[in-house]
Simulated assay, not measured.
Amino acid sequence: MKILVTGVAGFIGFHVARALLARGDSVLGVDNLNDYYDVRLKRDRLATLAATGVSKLEVVELDIADAAALRTLLAKSEIEAVVHLAAQAGVRYSLENPHAYTHSNVNGFLAVLEACRQHPVEHLVYASSSSVYGLNAHMPFSVHDNVDHPVSLYAATKKANELMAHSYSHLYGMPTTGLRFFTVYGPWGRPDMAYFLFTRAILEGRPIKVFNGGEMARDFTYIDDIVEGVVRVLDRPAVSDPAWSPTAPDPGSSCAPYRVFNIGNNQPVRLLEFITTIEAVLGREAVKDFQPMQPGDVTATCADIDALGAWTGYRPATPLAEGMARFVAWYRDYYEQREENSRK
Rank of each mutant, 00 (worst) to 15 (best):
D44M: 04
E61I: 13
S245V: 10
A280N: 14
I64C: 02
V8N: 03
A243G: 03
P257G: 12
A81W: 00
K56Y: 08
V59R: 02
R259P: 00
V59W: 00
T301L: 05
A321P: 02
Y154L: 08
W188N: 12
A65L: 07
N105C: 05
K42H: 13
S129M: 02
V16E: 01
R270A: 08
V269S: 09
R284V: 14
Y222R: 06
V233H: 04
A321M: 15
E80C: 07
I12M: 05
F290I: 11
S253I: 07
A51T: 01
W188E: 14
R92P: 10
T199R: 06
P249G: 12
E285M: 03
E340G: 11
D333K: 13
N161W: 03
E215K: 10
I263R: 00
P237N: 10
L135N: 14
L113N: 01
P268F: 04
G214P: 13
G283K: 06
K159S: 15
M293K: 13
V233N: 02
T199C: 15
R200M: 15
S55F: 03
A19N: 15
T312P: 12
E78R: 09
V147E: 04
I64H: 01
Y258W: 07
Q337G: 08
I263W: 00
V210L: 05
E279R: 05
I278R: 02
D241T: 12
S55P: 07
Y331P: 03
G323L: 05
E273A: 11
M216K: 06
K209T: 15
G313D: 14
D31I: 09
I275K: 01
V54Y: 11
K158N: 12
S55D: 14
A329C: 13
P268D: 11
T199H: 11
G283H: 06
L113S: 02
